[in-house]
Design a protein around this nucleic acid. Sequence first.
RNA 1: UGGGCUAUCGCCAAAUGGUAAGGCAACGGACUCUGACUCCGUCAUUUGAAGGUUCGAAUCCUCCUAGCCCAGCCA
Length: 569
Amino acid sequence: MGETNSRSAASEEEKTAPVSRNFIEEMIDKDLAEGRYKEVCTRFPPEPNGYLHIGHAKSILLNYGIAKEYGGKFHLRFDDTNPTKEKNEFVESIERDVAWLGAKHDGPVLFASNYFDTMYEKAVLLIKKGLAYVSDLSADEIREYRGTLTEPGREDPSRNRSVEENLELFTEMKDGKFADGEKVLRAKIDMASSNINMRDPIIYRIAHLTHQNTGDKWCIYPMYDFAHPIEDAIEGVTHSLCTLEFEDHRPLYNWVVENTDWENPPRQIEFAKMYLNNVVTGKRYIKKLVQDGVVDGWDDPRLVSIAGLRRRGYTPESIKMFVELSGISKANSVSDPAMLEYCIREDLKMKRPRMMAVLHPLKLIIDNYPEGQTELLDADNNLENPELGKRQIPFERELYINEDDFMEKPVPKYKRLYPGNEVRLMHAYFVKCVGCDKDESGHVTAVHVTYDPETKAGTGFTGRKAKGTIHWVPAKEAFRATVRLYNPLIDPDKSVYNEDGSLNLNPNSVEIIDNAMLEPALKDAKAYDSFQFVRDGYYCVDCKDSKEGAPVFNRIVTLKSSFKLPKKQ
RNA sequence: UGGGCUAUCGCCAAAUGGUAAGGCAACGGACUCUGACUCCGUCAUUUGAAGGUUCGAAUCCUCCUAGCCCAGCCA
């Protein structure tokens, strides 16, 4: 980018959006300015042991965004150093989710397990330098020797083995001479360190298991603290971004990198995780919800898994907007889901058609409209975005409106239909309420109105104004559909967890409406298509339960509203 | 009670010693063929607390307080 060119663009931007740089960008700026690195390389390093959620999206988008911002590289690398927990199923779902979010990785998908040879060599190097040794201690003994937070640890009896003996033992470990847990390779650092991670951490353990990538080639596997810095170094990652709980590991990260001989060692920078208020992200909790059938799988629309958000109708753009709006810092924080909802409304506002759907149908009869007559009315798909075109809606004597839009005895400030009041039927005519039909129990079964032909939409009628506008669907052509209204999974009035560790579930987290009446144009909607249902909210076609010509709609989010109807008794 | 980190509006978050941005939420009002959108307005005399340095402190110093993380052969 040319200096002169970027200049005016920059000053333009400064006027409109004076965005400040986050602390990570500041550190990178400094590294670049000081010549520590020439270009930037970041990575997203998930362990393939579960599904991704909104918190991972922050990390993905942060790493990807930084790489793009600096014209650098972004890697997708599976941190598969522990075969007891990892499955191929997860590498597939993670790849899919990362791609869906729009974070395109440079180069092929990478695996830590591809570097097992190098890691082994580096471990041997450490042994040769006298910086690692094979320990005979059991897991329990190692814990005991480690000391506590306030007391220093004690030296491992194997700590001063000769280099030759260590080399021999480590080779035997690799060759499968020992059972799981029998030996372990430890880094020789400092058993008295106030940082427990530095008290001769284990860097290799024995596990006679088939690895999802390397099969039975190895029976020893490197630990995270040893493997991760080496993975970063091999790939030329410059800035290894991770979450706050790894801050204590940074000295070890640096120790590994310094002692395993790299030209351009990477640097670890930690940032705060994203939490959402009243939302569950814990794997074991979600697993239980799935097992108990509380939710419909890991992609249930009420979950904040990436798959769940996608199925619910959230877009990658909305998630990106949310992550950007939330910012990056080192302060533990809990974001408000209202911000996520704002983002999806904002993203869909101009992009999606605004359709008419009646969730709780009530018959509306236009007494002075000729029986048997139908006219096709033109309707803009999105009044604010003409590019979305128009559609035609049949209009006739009998329609459905929403139950909420009629009150025989209106509450104060009510501006919808009530006897004597005139409203506009969206895209159609003004109608005036002349009464209603009721059954024996007094329940309203139909509303009667008369229409004024002069008030047809699009004719420029300005003779008078209607207090309100309501939406409708034609009784004959509308089709019946299932619509699901989602609410928070967690009871919003309580904390997420009960004292016994169970979740405070909201018993009404989904409301299923199976007799909604939708305008005909919605009938051919395909999975993941989304719409605004006018005066209601944004909805997305469910990818699992919809059938050809019979879409099932999930509510993504409601529209905001400053008017609340009093509760019906 | 060892070490590491954090603390600025209900929620997120800027401010890098020069006199507390912005967004979300909320609340008024205008507009409206969506009670939406949009627009306009309100929303921290004060930065966890107390002292100190300075002409000047959210920023520096001292002491205190609260929260998070660490004792896996998990990542």
